[in-house]
Design a binder for these strands. Structure first.
Lengths: 233, 233
DNA sequence: AGCATTCAAAGTGTCAACAGTTTTTGTTTC
DNA sequence: GAAACAAAAACTGTTGACACTTTGAATGCT
């Protein structure tokens, strides 16, 4: 019964246990990641009730570690708790989503501000290259590839700040926005529009004006907020 | 044995169970608050090992709820975990503290930016009143009262934005800074200095220039960061 | 039929015990 | 005396069981 953890019974097409080859991590942490993925992917929808017994059975564990995992998600703000009634996937409303967009904008703006003092030729070259690629993808209407490139572009900017707290906070906020039922896949809407904003961001970095950069980065997120607000209004 | 929760045995001068008259909350949540308080007050020092058995005995509960509480603190970033070895109070280093100051500055700057569009006569009057009080307290060298007034001043500014996500994020960051061993009680250092910065913040709000306000708020935290960095360097 | 009541089923909250790992202690050997 | 090894103590990881609460359905009454 213990060995089921490394080699769980596959009871006729079940899909628990993603890639648990290395048992370096505690079961609770593993479950947390699994659940977080299910929540963020929408497989567990916002507002949905989280039944401990069912989930424990689904992952082939007991309720103890599962509850610990749920507590972690609770602390992260992904689920809400009602005493003696259970936990529910957090459902973020329109107003709160707009609030989060603002905080995210501020943090992204900080990224721009920090980057201004860290700009190198290599960095700029990398960024201009990425802009070119994204233009190409946008022209080819390859939404999926553009989406990935866009993600990588932002990720590169964030990590280049060297501020890991900033990166973590930013990701946390982006994740929270996934808990909004009425979230719009905004990328499909403004494609080359978005890339024009990207270019303005890079150019403001190149200019060396940290206020301009901060504002460009800030507004990039604010415009995403407005696109969200108009579609989900 | 269940009743020990509402009426725990006081085994000769122990000090568990703060104010658990209303059992509205789950034991785990209650423990989390207790532990968080112990951590932030420094009674459980950064780096200290957290023994589940001892802690459970101290609070008069079993390890289950205690572990859930610790998991919440883990998710919040207050403790670190080493598999099969236990959990430790997170110890934040100088570099990470400086990073956090930057993020905090960005969020506080956002508060200033938002407030600019929400300024009313009542709000300004309240702020100028608070400035006057703090000047008085600073002149009287009443550090303790100034500290409290300062806290209330910032709290009022934050909540006046109406953005509860912003407030939550800000508090989370302030709390994390308490996990830095070498944190300086910076308030004692610059007293009227600090209040001069406060006045600049309020005046920038009154001016209606949101960029100026954002920058004033931002720099207020950045200067706190610099005071921290110079004393803890 | 409609509404209140009762009772069982389902689910969460908590605990005590067991399994496996890490740390400490005690002993032996050189 | 110091290093290597072995046994045990301490602790974490996980589980199954029990207590209490909520939910929902069946029953009885008007």
């Amino acid at each position: 019964m213990h060995d089921e953890r490394t080699m769980p019974e596959d009871d006729g097409g079940g899909e628990p246990q993603a890639d648990r080859t290395a048992v370096e991590d505690s079961l609770a942490s593993h479950l947390e990641r699994q659940l977080e993925h299910l929540v963020l992917s929408g497989e567990l929808a916002p507002g949905e009730r989280l039944n401990e017994i069912h989930l424990a059975a689904r992952f082939g564990t007991s309720r103890g570690p599962l509850r610990e995992a749920l507590r972690m998600l609770h602390a992260k703000g992904f689920v809400t708790t009602v005493r003696n009634r259970g936990m529910y996937v957090r459902a973020i409303g329109r107003e709160e989503a707009l609030e989060i967009y603002d905080v995210r904008a501020a943090i992204f703006g900080l990224a721009g501000r920090i980057l201004t003092d860290k700009v190198t030729d290599d960095l700029l070259e990398h960024l201009y290259l990425a802009l070119g690629e994204m233009d190409t993808l946008a022209a080819a209407r390859d939404f999926d590839a553009y989406y990935r490139a866009n993600l990588g572009f932002h990720e590169f900017l964030l990590t280049s700040t060297g501020n890991s707290s900033l990166v973590a906070q930013y990701h946390s906020l982006v994740d929270k926005l996934h808990l909004c039922r009425a979230r719009s896949l905004v990328q499909a809407g403004g494609l080359s529009v978005s890339n024009r904003e990207h270019r303005e961001m890079v150019e403001s970095l190149a200019s060396g004006d940290k206020f301009r950069a901060q504002e460009a980065f800030f507004r990039h997120v604010e415009r995403a907020k407005m696109r969200f607000g108009s579609t989900a209004g």
